[in-house]
């Protein structure tokens, strides 16, 4: 299988991490991957805040109820709101948040690619995280990518549900007369 596709299929959200520290070079590799993530208009309106300081990580976890794991490092993806406004984006513009997702996905894959475990956390107090990370005025923290070495045992995934294939998630839009298979699909849905 193609190594990129294999990485996509084998990546998991890691919610239990060991005490083993993460090397600075590994954090930088994840940050560099984030810089290569697709960015609307190639504008790069997002900023990253990284830390591997155990005391800061401890406090960050205290104000982040969604942070189940105890990460050895964390990268917080922020939107530089003044910069976004300067480019003409409204604060609620979906594009800004789509980019947070693509950056996070790229970082998660990068971490997996270099043998780290990673997990995204979006459940945290924006106000508190802004203080803990000493964010500059106007930077809104949107997602924390936790990094560490996966522990042997992981909690079960949230809300087990039937495994969905891409077919379950996809509809094709085509032109021309429906063939037999499409007609049958249509009849079943009707």
């Amino acid at each position: 299988m193609n190594p990129v596709l294999r990485a996509i299929r084998t990546r998991r959200v890691v919610r239990t991490m060991s005490d083993q520290p993460v090397a600075r070079e590994q954090i930088e590799a994840v940050l560099d991957a984030g810089r290569y993530a697709p960015s609307a208009g190639n504008r790069h309106l997002h900023r990253f805040v990284a830390t591997s300081d155990p005391a800061i990580l401890r406090v960050l976890r205290m104000v982040s109820p969604g942070m189940i794991q105890r990460p050895a490092a964390a990268v917080t993806i922020c939107i530089d709101q003044p910069l976004a406004v300067e480019y003409g984006f409204a604060r609620t513009s979906p594009g800004l948040y789509v980019d947070v997702g693509t950056i996070a996905a790229t970082m998660l894959l990068a971490a997996h690619g270099i043998g780290l475990g990673a997990g995204p956390v979006s459940s945290f107090s924006r106000a508190a995280v802004g203080v803990v990370l000493r964010l500059p005025e106007g930077w809104s923290p949107e997602l924390v990518v936790c990094l560490g070495h996966p522990a042997t045992e992981q909690p079960p995934p949230m809300g087990r549900r039937p495994s969905l294939s891409w077919r379950d998630l996809t509809r094709w839009v085509v032109r021309g007369p429906a063939d037999e298979e499409q007609r049958a699909d249509h009849d079943r849905e009707a």
């Binding site: 205290m62 104000v63 508190a128």
Partner: peptide, 22 residues
């Protein structure tokens, strides 16, 4: 105690925006 206090207060805030099942 402080750690738990911080968790509870921030969880109250995040819960405003989160799914009820959380």
């Amino acid at each position: 105690a402080l750690e738990l206090l911080a968790y509870l207060v921030t969880a109250a805030r995040t819960q405003v925006d989160e799914a009820a099942e959380y």
